[in-house]
Design a protein around this nucleic acid. Structure first.
Lengths: 349, 349
DNA sequence: TTTAGCACTCTAAGATTGCGAGTGCTAACG
DNA sequence: CGTTAGCACTCGCAATCTTAGAGTGCTAAA
């Protein structure tokens, strides 16, 4: 099971991947022998290549081209061969300047995503998971609409606003709704959304009898309100930017592939699912090619990391680009960005 | 100034454009002579073609290819030669089924845009102009945040909510803010947004002295609130869908062009500006190629129409696709869609 | 004014060729 | 036994050439 790879072969693989990432050209034995720094002949390198090919680390596009890394080769490269290149101070300062904590989460996410895209020249993404355990209800408000409908406005977490239309069985006056909102605010404000969903139900069951009619109705309205956001607000907490940069890469010049990719971006749903998987892992995570089991990402890799406050994961950010990307640069960028976002959020709390 | 084109030449141009739209191939004189239905020889057609070329209606990619229409040729075609093909009843019914008036404007716009994209197999777009004269303020509400900031929530037009963070010079209590909101609501609720922007200023000036401190402050808060939305909410009232369909067209297989186009979609700003121009015109309007003076739309055309209620224009909708599109189908689709949206909105009012 | 005829032009698609890069194999070497 | 040099072989790429076909413009006749 354990695949044996000699030190020299490992080194050669490393140099090969680096060369291929730099030039995008299949790497031949002569060139590799020269660039490796080892004092061996091309023939020796060829033997090593044959071994690596057998292990599925490299492959040749055709008989007389050099070798290119396979996904498995990339995997080995990033897992154990990669030499990370730390960010310069200047780059870190730039990032810090971009991070405004003033705006809403949406705005923060957008600016971070832009930053990631700009630094890597690929597509940047930031996701705020919908479970959002940290979000607490600040205030709730009702407003009568026509046709037995009510507009409910939730203020969450200091700066985010969410609104939902619910339907009720009769027309309510503004005063009635005010009363209902007052009641709900006194009961629920300050609690976390997750808890709210459960406390509501409990309260309804337990104190069903001894309550005023009005409160009864207030609670059933609240129920309606808190049912929806889980599915509806899903799409709003994912920001992607710089997609068009991906059009510049040769490996994505196939229109079919590219179209599939962009359609996936539009769907969001599937990408989100994929990102969900990263929530568990700590530190930078990398999906190479279709490791994600997601066809359209064939020739792409995702480099992600989660950001967190007080040890609790708040979300995921990262970049998406061609598999042939400069990992040694991209990885620290994603890593540092995640840490700085974490810090910024902690400070803002 | 008036360019003379004989009846036969016009007919030939029509057939040529139709043929080119269908096949995407330059049209030669022999084929054209046959398809035109006229009883003339290819040589005669050639003479006519030479005239049309001189007038700038057609051009040949190279000496021995057929002719293709120029933008000017397309323009003449859609202006005076086109035979519109009405929609089938079934298509109209489908559209009607898709139009839900329940949701917010945003949702309505999305579904219409999807419909347009689906029917034409190109990109659909729906814009709600930001001037939004019809939108009236329903309710305003303040909520204290930390650091001398206040969250202002506007309810507009029955179902849309907008929120803005403003900064003030001191901390206000919830009660104070409630009082301010009450005052503003009594003064402003029910008025159109456009008017509100102006009434506020007036009122400030005129009654400056005889007012309570609180109201003074309320007004200056309101000023801040109504300043921002003009620029901020610009981006939210434009929906585009099916962009990826454009990737299927040969004329857009040039990566540079395509990228420019998609970047323009992301910017939104410039497209909106363009759409603004259509607001004046009545009925279906068509931009062919770079008539818009907007480089990235080189090989594209836009077909738009505005939708309105009570004779007042509410917004623009339309499709964007390659210049070589089936106008005789697209035009009625856009036309009918605009009318049905108008009707749906009138009914909902 | 229209038409037929004709020489001419240009492109797109094969076919052919040579070159260069790179391989795999084998035999020799330390 | 790992390493190396040598060599025949394969393959793709680009350049060159060829050919077929489509279409044109021009001219002269109807």
């Amino acid at each position: 099971m354990v695949e044996e790879i000699g030190d020299r072969a490992q080194h050669l693989l490393k140099v090969l991947v680096e060369s291929y990432i730099r030039n995008g050209q299949p790497v031949g034995s002569r060139l590799l022998a020269r660039d490796s720094g080892l004092d061996v002949s091309a023939a020796t390198v060829r033997n090593a290549m044959a071994d690596l090919e057998e292990l599925g680390m490299v492959s040749s596009p055709h008989t007389s081209a050099g070798r290119i890394p396979t996904n498995k080769g990339y995997r080995m490269f990033v897992d154990s061969l990669l030499t990370i290149k730390p960010l310069t101070d200047r780059e870190i300062i730039t990032l810090n300047g971009q991070l405004g904590v003033d705006g809403s989460n949406q705005e923060l996410a957008t600016s971070v995503s832009d930053y990631l895209s700009g630094m890597t020249e690929m597509a940047g993404m930031v996701m705020i998971p919908r479970t959002a355990k940290r979000s607490s209800l600040r205030h709730i408000e009702f407003m009568p609409l026509s046709d037995h409908r009510i507009l409910a406005i939730l203020v969450i977490n200091e700066k985010d606003v969410q609104n939902t239309v619910i339907k009720v069985d009769r027309q309510y006056t503004a005063a009635e709704l005010q009363q209902a909102a007052n009641f709900l605010n006194s009961e629920l404000a300050g609690h976390e959304l997750f808890d709210v969903r459960h406390r509501i139900l409990k309260e309804l069951r337990e104190t069903k009898d001894g309550m005023e009619q009005m409160m009864h109705q207030a609670i059933s309205m609240a129920e309606q309100v808190f049912e929806q956001p889980a599915s509806k607000s899903n799409t709003d907490d994912f920001v992607l930017s710089g997609q068009t940069r991906l059009m510049g890469f040769e490996e994505l010049s196939n229109m079919e592939k590219l179209r599939g990719l962009f359609e996936a971006f539009n769907e969001k749903q599937e990408i989100l699912q994929l990102l969900d998987k990263c929530l568990d892992g700590d530190g930078v995570q990398i999906f190479i090619g279709d490791e994600s089991g997601y066809g359209v990402l064939d020739e792409c890799s995702m480099v992600t990391s989660c950001y967190q406050v007080d040890g609790e994961v708040l979300g995921i950010l990262g970049v998406i680009g061609p598999t042939r990307m400069a990992y040694e640069r991209v990885i620290p960028i994603v890593d540092v960005t995640a840490k700085m976002v974490s810090a910024a959020l902690a400070q803002a709390k």
